[in-house]
């Protein structure tokens, strides 16, 4: 009969921060090793930018103050990357982890929930920043798109976007029943939203579509990114109103997540 007494675990805030770093490392490994997510998030936006940039040629957009169409696509695809990583990839990953029992196992490990959440968010931020930097560099040196007029505004828009759309990703993962439907459901929602928000072509201001999109978060994130790049011509870098809308959607999604989030797979 074992009666050995083991030393009481020593834990400190510092060791928990190390645990966050530990988790971030493996979240990164999981993301880059599972190529589907990496291709969908980073690969797609780079390929789209290159293709659309090549086909747009020297086309100008009058409604945005005669800037080149490519200058419209760079901030747009940074927004795409934020949403692909924060919303689509995250929600599918969560559903798969939940249904295979991985979330339940994590819940039963000594890792605190806040460590799990913050490491996922930090990991998503790393992915998105890598992707944003790639797009800025490709735009600048491939298509003469100016650097952002405010790097700080770009960073803030990326962070607010990640927090807001990650919350929406968690919320949708909670209502998606199983792994089979996770990919299709989130992709359809995502691409319809992108279309409505004018990612592929600038929406004429005051059009019905633009008015409708004003109620949805996607267009506001694109506008916030646009502003950081000074699009439309002469725009101030800070689109506070648009960031606020994204944040509000995030707050609403957080409430849904708190009510609906499940750690355990559905029993069959």
């Amino acid at each position: 009969m074992s009666t050995d007494v083991r030393p009481a675990p020593q834990r400190s805030r510092f060791s928990d921060l190390r645990l966050v770093a530990h988790q971030v490392k493996y979240e990164q490994l999981a993301f880059w090793l599972n190529r589907v997510g990496a291709v969908f998030t980073v690969g797609f936006s780079v390929v789209f930018l290159v293709m659309l940039g090549a086909s747009a040629g020297s086309q100008k957009v009058q409604s945005l103050g005669d800037i080149s169409l490519v200058s419209y696509y760079v901030p747009g695809f940074i927004a795409y990357g934020v949403m692909a990583a924060g919303f689509t990839t995250l929600s599918v990953t969560l559903v798969v982890r939940r249904e295979t029992g991985l979330l339940k196992r994590l819940r039963l490990s000594p890792v605190p929930t806040w460590v799990l959440i913050s490491s996922i968010l930090i990991s998503t931020a790393i992915i998105t920043l890598v992707q944003a930097l790639l797009l800025v560099v490709i735009g600048r040196y491939g298509y003469h798109v100016a650097f952002p007029s405010s790097w700080l505004a770009l960073l803030v828009a990326v962070i607010v976007g990640i927090l807001g759309f990650a919350a929406m990703g968690v919320a949708i993962s909670a209502v998606v029943p199983n792994q089979e439907s996770a990919g299709p459901v989130t992709s359809i929602v995502f691409f319809v939203l992108l279309f409505l928000a004018g990612l592929w072509f600038p929406l004429p201001p005051n059009s019905g579509l633009a008015k409708f999109s004003n109620y949805l978060p996607v267009r506001h994130l694109i506008i916030a990114m646009d502003h950081a790049f000074g699009v439309p011509r002469g725009a101030t870098p800070w689109a506070w109103h648009d960031l606020l809308v994204v944040a509000l959607w995030g707050a609403g999604a957080t409430l849904v997540s708190l009510r609906r989030f499940r750690w355990a797979p559905r029993r069959v």
């Binding site: 083991r6 090793l33 029992g101 991985l102 490990s109």
Partner: peptide
Amino acid sequence: LRGLRDRIGVVLQELAVESFF
């Protein structure tokens, strides 16, 4: 609870392993 979870191990009915690691 955390102190308890430091000292227990769990194997679920589901095969909870990540496939690409």
